[in-house]
Design a protein around this nucleic acid. Structure first.
Length: 219
DNA sequence: TAGGCCATCTGGTCCT
DNA sequence: AGGACCAGATGGCCTA
């Protein structure tokens, strides 16, 4: 429809962290721009080699910056059902409505090019943040005892095992002090991953027993 | 093929 | 003001 449709390619790069693959260069290549149509429709495509599991899933996002009025939310399909509409009421948030509105006005005042650049930079930061979060998960996986498996622990499994591990160690400490054990390992309360978690719980108990024995013999 | 898991994008909100 | 954080949406990969 618009003769001025543009294609902006975000860096086509590997996942950086998150497992394998290339690194996020962070470079942004604007295929082409014409100064005179900053507020026209813009299609932003970004192709990332997601997780490096395959040749790249070729995720692409399309940002429609067509005339950003206050009700432009409904113009963007991906936002129709987003939390923009589902977010729960929060008094604190409510009190910030004014500033949020002015923020939106400011955002709308930015040129399409500026907004696009900000968005790409924001995406890059978010990717880095998630990568560091995944690094932390990886480090956590390395220090919690678990049954060696073909596949790596999922995030929820990692967190649950870590919790069980902490509980088991706490029990050991309390037992050494002569206090009552604060935690008991009963049934697995998590529906999914039951096999792994059940194994982990018995492991946690074994671990606690072993630790206890070692400490006792050392004293 | 359905479901689980994951990476990424995105916009709102919070924080410094 | 700008970055961090958060959570919903989306789509790809993998496995049972």
């Amino acid at each position: 429809m618009h003769s001025s449709e543009k294609i902006i390619s975000a860096p086509s790069s590997g996942p950086g962290g998150g497992g394998s693959g290339g690194s996020d260069s962070g470079s942004v290549s604007l295929d082409y721009w014409r100064e005179d149509d900053e507020d026209c429709d813009i299609e932003v495509t970004s192709d990332y080699d997601v997780s490096g599991k395959s040749g790249g899933s070729g995720k692409s996002s399309h940002i429609d910056f067509s005339d950003s009025s206050d009700n432009d939310d409904i113009n963007e399909p991906s936002r129709k059902n987003s939390k923009l509409h589902k977010r729960k009421f929060h008094p604190l948030h409510h009190s910030h409505q004014g500033s949020a509105l002015s923020a939106r006005r400011k955002r709308n005042a930015l040129s399409a090019r500026e907004r696009n650049l900000r968005r790409l930079e924001s995406n890059e930061r978010e990717r880095m943040r998630m990568h560091s979060l995944n690094d932390a998960f990886e480090q956590l996986r390395e220090v919690i005892p678990h049954v060696k498996m073909e596949r790596k622990l999922s995030k929820i499994e990692t967190l649950t095992l870590a919790k069980n591990y902490i509980m088991a160690l706490t029990n050991v400490i309390c037992e050494m002090r002569g206090d009552e054990k604060p935690y008991t390992f009963l049934d697995v309360d998590c529906g999914s991953d039951s096999e792994v978690l059940e194994t982990s719980q018995s492991q946690s108990q074994d671990l606690a027993t072993n630790l206890n024995n070692q400490v006792s013999s050392a004293l």
